[in-house]
Design a protein around this nucleic acid. Structure first.
Lengths: 226, 226
DNA sequence: CGGCAATTTGAACATTTTCAATACGGGTGG
DNA sequence: CCACCCGTATTGAAAATGTTCAAATTGCCG
C-alpha cells in the first residue's frame, strides 16, 4: 500500500551545500573554480520563463517542482512535462534565441540560475563531443511538439496547425500516416477524415501518398477555428 | 504556396564525408583522432532498437527519418517524436541500462552506430560540465511520458497507469490537478471524474488535496481495462 | 473571518473512436 | 514490362467517450 505524504506547499531547504550538488561538483568547486549558478527562490505559481521569450538564463532546480508547458495554438499552452529537483530547465538557451517552453513553479522552488553566456563558458570549448551531443539533443527536443489530444482543438484544427509548422518537412520525408496520427493524438481514421475535410475546404490537395498545401490562408483559418 | 516533394522511400547517399559531419568534426577526425561511429544502412520499417532492450548502442541519423515511440500501456506503443538527419537517438544508453524509446526507420536510413562503451569514451571525462548537463537532460527526458490522448485508453485507465508509475512522486510534490490533466490529455473536469471513479472502485482514497493509493491491484486492473 | 482560486458536480452535446469493409499503390515475381 | 498480392489508407454508420459551460463547493491565505 503506497501512501503519499501530504502535498508540500512550502519547502524547507536550509543550506544546500553546493559541494553536494551535481552542478557544483561539475564546476570544480573544490578545485578553486567557480560555479556560475546563483540561487534564487520563487513562490509557487511564479513563471520562471515563457515560451518565446529571449532565452537568456538557464536554471537548475535545486528543490521544488517546475512544470514545463508548450503552446498548442491560439496562444493556449499545455503542460507537457514535470521537472523535479536535480533537473536543468531552459537549457534550450544554448541552441536557440528563445525559450521553447514555459516554465512555472508548481511549488515554492529553489532555483540556481546562470546567464546563457555564463553557461556557455562553463560548458567549456564548443565542438567537443560532449557539448556537441548536448546541443544536438537540445535542438531535437526543442523542435518536438507535445502529442496533442482532443482538448487541444478539433482534429481538423490540430492537423492544420501541424501542417503549418511541420508539414512540408514531415510529410515529405515519408512519415507514415499512422505516425502522424499518433503525434496528433488521434486515430489514423480520424486523420484521414481530417485530411479529407481540409482538402474539401481547398486548403490542401492530397492523394494517398502525396500532400500539398494549396492555400496557407485557409489552413491558418482552420488552425484558428478550434 | 508550399509544395511538397513526392514521398521519399529510397535515399541516395553516395559517400557522406565524415569530415562534413557534426559528429565527425567533434571527433577530431582531421587531427589524427577517430570516430567511434560506424555507418550502417537499414531499410524502411526496420526497428533500430526497442524500449526495454539493453541499451548498448547509440545512433546518429545520417540520412532518412527515424520515429521514436514510447509505451502507453498493455504493450501498446505510440509515436511521440520524429528524428531527422543530424540527430542522435538512443543516447539514453548513457544514463540507463535500457532504452526508453522504440526507434523505427520510417524511410530507408543511413545510421552511424557506436557502442555505449565507445560513446562513453568518446564523450571524455565524466563529471565535466558539458557531460553533466547532457546526463541530467537525458535522465529527465527519459523519465517523461508522452502526453496521452483518448485513443490511448479511457480516462480512468490513463489515470490509473499514471498513478502506478508517477503517482506517488507527482502527487506528493504538489503538482496541481490541472497539470496532471494536461499530461494525461484530458480536461480537469474529466480528471476529477476519473479520480472519483477510481475512489468508488476502492483503488484510491482522495480528498480535494490528498491522494492515497489504497489498493494497487485494483489500480492495475483499472489500468489494464482499457 | 472574508474572498479567491481550484476542484467538483450536473446534464446536454459534440466529437472521436470503433469495427468493418473497401480501395489503392507499391513492391514482387514471372 | 505487366499482373498479382499485401499492407496502408479510406469510408461508413453506430456508439461511447469526453467536452462544455455553468453553478456549487471547499480549502487556503491574507
Amino acid at each position: 500500500m503506497i501512501e503519499t505524504e501530504p502535498v508540500i506547499k512550502r519547502i524547507r531547504v536550509e543550506r544546500l551545500e553546493c559541494s553536494a550538488c551535481e552542478i557544483g561538483r561539475a564546476s570544480g568547486l573544490g578545485r578553486g573554480q567557480f560555479c556560475p549558478f546563483i540561487e534564487r527562490r520563487l513562490p509557487a505559481g511564479t513563471a520562471v520563463f515563457s515560451a518565446g521569450d529571449a532565452a537568456d538564463h538557464v536554471w537548475f532546480v535545486r528543490a521544488g517542482t517546475v512544470v514545463l508547458s508548450r503552446e498548442v495554438g491560439r496562444g493556449e499552452t499545455r503542460a507537457r512535462a514535470i521537472r523535479f529537483a536535480g533537473s536543468l530547465v531552459g537549457l534550450e538557451a544554448l541552441v536557440s534565441p528563445v525559450y521553447a517552453d514555459t516554465a512555472t513553479a508548481a511549488t515554492e522552488v529553489s532555483l540556481c540560475g546562470a546567464t546563457s553566456v555564463g553557461v556557455d563558458l562553463w560548458l567549456g570549448a564548443r565542438g567537443t563531443p560532449a557539448r556537441t551531443a548536448l546541443e544536438i539533443t537540445l535542438r531535437a527536443s526543442g523542435a518536438d511538439r507535445p502529442r496533442e489530444s482532443p482538448g487541444d482543438g478539433s482534429a481538423v484544427a490540430r492537423l492544420a496547425r501541424w501542417l503549418l509548422d511541420e508539414g512540408p518537412r514531415g510529410v515529405t520525408l515519408g512519415v507514415p500516416r499512422h505516425v502522424i496520427a499518433d503525434l496528433l493524438g488521434m486515430r489514423a481514421e480520424t486523420l484521414s477524415r481530417a485530411l479529407g475535410e481540409l482538402a474539401r475546404r481547398g486548403a490542401i490537395a492530397t492523394t494517398r501518398t502525396t500532400l500539398r498545401i494549396v492555400d496557407e490562408e485557409r489552413l491558418a483559418d482552420a488552425a484558428a477555428a478550434g
